[in-house]
Amino acid sequence: MQKYADYIKTIEIDALWSGKKHIVWDLDPKVNVLSGINGVGKSTILNKVVRSVGVNGDIVNHLLKGVHLTTAPEDATHIRFDLIRSLDSNLSQTFSESEGFIHQALSVLAGVGGGSLLDLQLYQLQRKYLDYQVNIGNRIIEALQRGDSHMAQQLSEPKKRFQDMVDELFAETGKKMVRKENEIRFTQIGETLLPYQLSSGEKQMLVILLTVLVEDHQPYVLFMDEPEVSLHIEWQKRLIELIVELNPNVQIILTTHSPAVIMSGWLDKVTEVSDITV
C-alpha cells in the first residue's frame, strides 16, 4: 500500500565526486536553499536526489547507489514531487523526434509558435490544469449540493489567487489572463495570446506557479534548479513567497546563485554545499 511522505527530513549521498565526498543535509520542512560557487556540485546533488526517486514517486533508494532519503513519516513509501529547471533551449535539439510524446508535442507546439523546453512544460501543464479544474469543479458541485457554500468558496479560491498573481506579475506589460476559458490564454491590448507567445521569464514564472497550483494543496516536494535565470529581479524576490502562498504544504528544495531569491526573509534557509560536505 502506498504511503506518501509529507516532506524529506534528510538527504545523504555517499561517494559523491568519485568517492571523495559525503553529503549529509538536514532539511527544513518548508524551504531549503542550496548555495555555493559554480562547479561546487549544487545541481549534481539535486539531480542525484531526483534520480533516486522513481517516476511514480516511489522512494527507491537502493536503485541509485549512495543516495538515502529519510522522510516524515519515516515509513512512507512514496513522495509527490516536481522538478523545475530554467532551461529554454530548442526541443528539436534536445530530443529525438522518434520519441512518441515529444514528436506529438513538437507538432502541436510548432503550430502555435512554441518549441522550447519551457513550451513543452507548458504543454504538459495545460493538460494537468484542465484535469485540476474538472476535479475542483466536481468538488464544488458536491459542496453546493450539501448546502456548504463556504466550502465551495474555499475550493475556488486557489485558482482565483493563481490568476490574480499572474495578472499582478504581468501587469507592467498589460497582459491579463482570460478567465472565461478553461485553457490558459492572455489578452494584451485587445489581442489574444497563447502561453507559448510569452517571454522566457513569463513562461518560467507561469510554469512554476502552474506546477504548484495543480498539486491541489497536497504535501509534495518542489525541486528547482536555478529557477531565477530568466526571472526579473523583483520576481526573484517574490518567488518563494508566491509558491508557499499557493500551497502551504509544499517543501521547496532549490539551488540558486541569486541573492534576490532569499532577500525577502529566507536567509536563514540557505545552506552552503561546504556546510553539508564531509
Rank of each mutant, 00 (worst) to 15 (best):
N90S: 06
E99W: 09
L91N: 03
D119G: 10
A105V: 11
Q104N: 09
D119I: 10
Q93M: 13
F101I: 06
L87K: 13
Q104L: 12
E99I: 10
T94W: 10
S107R: 15
L91T: 02
G111H: 01
Q93T: 14
G115C: 02
L87G: 12
L122K: 00
V108Y: 12
H103D: 13
L122Q: 03
F101W: 03
G100F: 09
E99P: 01
N90L: 07
S92T: 12
L87F: 15
L109R: 07
R85S: 13
L120C: 03
S116G: 00
I102Y: 09
V112I: 09
A105Y: 05
L122H: 01
Q93I: 08
L118M: 14
F95Y: 14
L91M: 13
D88K: 06
T94L: 14
F101L: 09
S98H: 06
L122D: 01
Q121I: 04
L117C: 01
I102G: 01
V108W: 10
H103G: 14
Q121H: 08
R85I: 14
S96M: 12
Y123C: 01
S92Q: 12
F95L: 07
S86N: 15
G115P: 02
Q93V: 09
D119H: 10
R85T: 15
Q93W: 09
L87R: 13
G100H: 06
G111L: 03
Q121E: 12
L118R: 12
Q93G: 12
Q104W: 06
F95R: 05
E99L: 11
G114I: 05
